[in-house]
Nucleic acid binder design. Structure first.
Length: 265
DNA sequence: ACGCTTCCCTGGAGGC
DNA sequence: TGCCTCCAGGGAAGCG
């Protein structure tokens, strides 16, 4: 479920594998992924060019081809990227493929069609038009700035963290992780947090996202005290408090938390 | 302003 | 073995 850390890992993966290689062709296998171009247009635009650089904002990835073709890649729930040479036995989910002269290819994979690729003018325009908030790991987002954006909001902490128009990059999984580590109940209203709790929430948000990027968002490498790899109701609290993980719908999403560590206030 | 529901989309799980 | 329903959660959109 690609959130900020996952998309950052995809970005680094593309940077390490696919930049500066001449594109021989682009194949759009499922046109539902192509949001604003048809099957052959991307091939016409990119043939003979190279992917020059990437950028990320929240859950959105931007790729520049040549000197003027910007793409926005969004992954929905099931999107991923793969750099491959061999054919795959089951390539059903390979929706858009960028072939390079070196016989390798970069594939946009997606099981469900909840993501997409879009040609855009540029990242800044896209972010503005979309109304996306500041990226959660942007150094310019410090405690003061976070307070301006979040403090005093009456909405629940979980939905506030997940609101892309406020801060971009946090989804269901990482909002649960941040709230678990900060010991805040997902239904706590932002304006119920005192200064210390808010500061803890802010620092925890940064720490969790950074750590997740460090371990390449790999659940099996997450610390034993994290709740993410143990998102099942009834499992013991990973902090070892003796209580059990609870599941509850919060603003339309499944929230997992420890009712003892994250007391509702 | 905020939360809730519905919709999109595909596959896995569990009930019968 | 199969049919049915629910659920996963990225979003958009509409309603109260």
């Amino acid at each position: 479920m690609p959130e900020l850390p996952d998309v950052e890992v995809y970005k680094q993966y593309i940077d390490a594998t696919s930049l500066h290689q001449k594109i021989s062709s682009v194949s759009v296998r499922d046109s539902r992924i192509a949001r604003n171009f048809n099957g052959s247009q991307m091939d016409e635009w990119l043939k003979g060019k190279t992917l020059e650089k990437t950028a990320r904002h929240g859950k959105h990835l931007f790729i520049l081809a040549g000197d003027d073709v910007w793409m926005m890649w969004h992954f929905g729930m099931t999107g991923a990227v793969r750099y491959l040479k061999k054919e795959r036995k089951n390539a059903d989910y390979e929706r858009v493929t960028f072939y390079f002269d070196n016989k390798y290819r970069l594939s946009y994979d997606a099981r469900r069609m909840l993501g997409g690729i879009q040609r855009i003018e540029g990242p800044e325009d896209f972010i503005r038009e979309k109304g996306l908030g500041i990226d959660a790991l942007d150094p310019a987002l410090d405690l003061d700035r976070a307070r301006e954006l979040l403090a005093g909001k009456r909405a629940m902490a979980k939905s506030t963290l997940m609101k892309q128009e406020t801060i971009a990059g946090i989804g269901n999984i990482y909002s649960d992780e941040i709230l678990f580590q900060a010991r805040i109940h997902p239904e706590t209203s932002m304006d119920h947090l005192d200064a210390k709790e808010f500061s803890t929430l802010f620092k925890t948000m940064k720490a969790v996202l950074k750590k997740a990027v460090d371990i390449r968002a790999e659940p099996s490498d997450m610390p034993a005290t994290w709740i993410t790899p143990r998102r099942q109701p009834g499992k013991p609290c990973p902090r070892g408090c003796g209580s059990r993980i609870q599941k509850k719908k919060v603003s339309g999403r499944s929230a997992y938390f420890c009712p003892a560590c994250q007391e509702k206030k």
